[in-house]
């Protein structure tokens, strides 16, 4: 069994924080982009989608972690998918019961959480190897990172496309909404812009570190 050979990770703040920033599922790993672009035309949709995905991530991560020594290696992917699909079905009926408007706004994308690569990726790469606490904390971090990314897109798109955030209008009546932002192309543009911004910041930091290193080298 290879399971015993893998180092069991201690639960540290880093287990949670990694998913939020360093290994952010959307901005860094570029996983699960379909819901990220499709449901972020308003902040509330983005928030609901983020929470639903986090719930599925955490509960499937917990169950897979508990069953990790029982699942035969050959059929593990199929098992994970069935576990994930079960929790997605629960979320699907839950949202339907809580708010039908929200359910209609999100449409098929709630059921499509099943094929969100973030969840399967976490199951395969983390939850299937770690103990319950580590798996849950890591899934929570990933879920928070995913929600954060959704909110980044959702707020920008709602602000520019409708002039409001969470339905509150922020601009005077003279504001002409950029309708394209709430339409499909806007999703691509906003995500592209965020990535440009992060890449620019990363390169600027690298240049600064380089310059600092040079100064140090000359100083000594």
């Amino acid at each position: 069994m290879t399971g015993q050979l893998i180092r069991q990770e201690q639960v540290t703040p880093d287990t949670f924080l990694r998913g939020l920033w360093e290994e952010n599922p959307v901005f860094v790993m570029m996983l699960g982009l379909c819901p990220v672009l499709a449901v972020t035309n308003s902040t509330i949709n983005a928030l609901a989608m983020g929470l639903a995905t986090t719930f599925v991530l955490v509960s499937s991560g917990a169950l897979i972690s508990l069953l990790r020594n029982l699942i035969p290696k050959q059929v593990r992917i199929a098992t994970y998918i069935v576990i994930i699909a079960t929790f997605v079905t629960i979320v699907d009926y839950l949202i339907q019961a809580i708010s039908l408007d929200l359910y209609n706004a999100l449409g098929a994308f709630i059921q499509l959480i099943v094929v969100n690569c973030v969840i399967l990726g976490r199951a395969e790469a983390y939850a299937s190897k770690q103990k319950l606490p580590a798996a849950v904390v890591n899934a929570l971090g990933m879920g928070a990172g995913f929600t954060l990314a959704l909110l980044c897109l959702g707020t920008v798109r709602e602000l520019l496309g409708a002039g409001s955030i969470l339905g509150f209008h922020l601009f005077s009546a003279n504001f002409e909404p950029w309708v394209v932002m709430v339409l499909p192309p806007g999703g691509f543009f906003v995500l592209g812009s965020w990535l440009l911004l992060f890449e620019y910041l990363k390169q600027r930091r690298a240049r600064k570190a380089e310059a600092a290193a040079e100064v140090m080298a000359h100083g000594s």
Binding site: P185, G186, F188, F189, G192, L195, E199, Y200
Partner: peptide
């Protein structure tokens, strides 16, 4: 700065438009 995923997304945006 624009190499990689960001550029692909911008292109996809134009196609989508």
């Amino acid at each position: 700065v624009a190499q990689g995923a960001a550029l692909s997304l911008m292109l996809a945006g134009l196609l989508s438009l």
